[in-house]
Design a protein around this nucleic acid. Structure first.
Length: 257
DNA sequence: ATGTCGTAGCCACTACGA
């Protein structure tokens, strides 16, 4: 089974690119972030015509997450962090698909840092990590996929020295990501590409994609019950070269059934 | 500081978030 995550940066503007990518690569399960569309503006019919069932949690202007599935049923578990019911931002949705719990997240960007947005990011990260621990305690196969807005290490950014003050790379963010991994999660891309430079995001500015000035911020974390089934983990970086494309590339893993 | 997108309010462009 192939599971993908893709920050589309606006599903309305991105629909042609999304449909082309789905058609060409046929992932089984897809986690989408940054829909930037209210609940009723999700292109449900176009997604269905492409062969996918979907659940989504929209929001006007910002955020928004969705889970798509080609053949298997999607059993929704929640559409907000369970311990965070007062959060008005649509950043998390979770479902069970076959035997796998799929969490789709869009962690806050947090810039400018320091400041209230950075505080919100760290608070969200903490609540997410608490939920991740609860998922581990269930002892079932879990994948947490999405845009973490976190650069794990210096290997994951084209020029680390330029990013030390950025909310995506500040020590607090790296520490939060490290602590999350330390619960027992496997970073799928790093597991299969331990030394390789792998990016998932290239800024729209200054031809970042052409210069390969990228970041690795979209991650797949696998629970111990799922990690042994990991076969492949890749970035569809060619999609970043298409017209009217997102600043993120789709990332995917192959899981043994 | 800058660069470029997508969205919203509104029909020209500016503000905001990323």
């Amino acid at each position: 089974m192939r599971i993908a995550t893709y920050n589309v940066n606006g599903i309305t503007a991105r629909l042609p690119v999304l449909l082309r990518w789905l058609e060409e690569t046929q992932p089984d399960v897809v986690c989408l972030q940054e829909l930037k569309a209210p609940q009723e503006k999700f292109p449900e019919q176009a997604i269905r015509d492409a062969g996918y069932k979907a659940i989504w949690h929209g929001q006007k202007s910002w955020n928004g997450v969705a889970i798509l599935s080609r053949t298997e049923e999607i059993e929704e578990r929640c559409r907000v962090l369970p311990d965070d019911p007062e959060d008005l931002q649509s950043r998390y949705i979770e479902a069970r698909i076959k035997d796998i719990v799929v969490g789709c997240l869009y962690l806050p960007n947090g810039n400018p840092a320091p400041g209230p947005k950075f505080d919100y990011k760290l608070g969200w990260f903490k609540r997410f990590s608490q939920h991740a621990q609860q998922l581990l305690n269930e002892g079932v196969p879990v994948v947490l996929a999405g845009d973490y807005n976190a650069i794990p290490t210096e290997k994951d950014v084209y020029k680390p020295e330029r990013w030390t003050e950025d909310a995506l790379f500040r020590p607090e963010t790296r520490k939060a990501y490290h602590n999350l991994i330390a619960q027992g999660w496997t970073d799928a891309i790093r597991k299969l590409h331990p030394d390789e430079t792998v990016y998932t995001f290239w800024d729209y500015f200054r031809d970042a994609y052409g210069r390969n000035a990228g970041l690795r911020i979209d991650h797949f974390l696998l629970s111990p019950q799922l990690a042994p089934r990991l076969q492949k983990a890749e970035v569809d970086r060619f999609v970043r070269g298409w017209e009217k494309t997102s600043d993120h590339g789709p990332v995917w893993i192959e899981i043994q059934d």
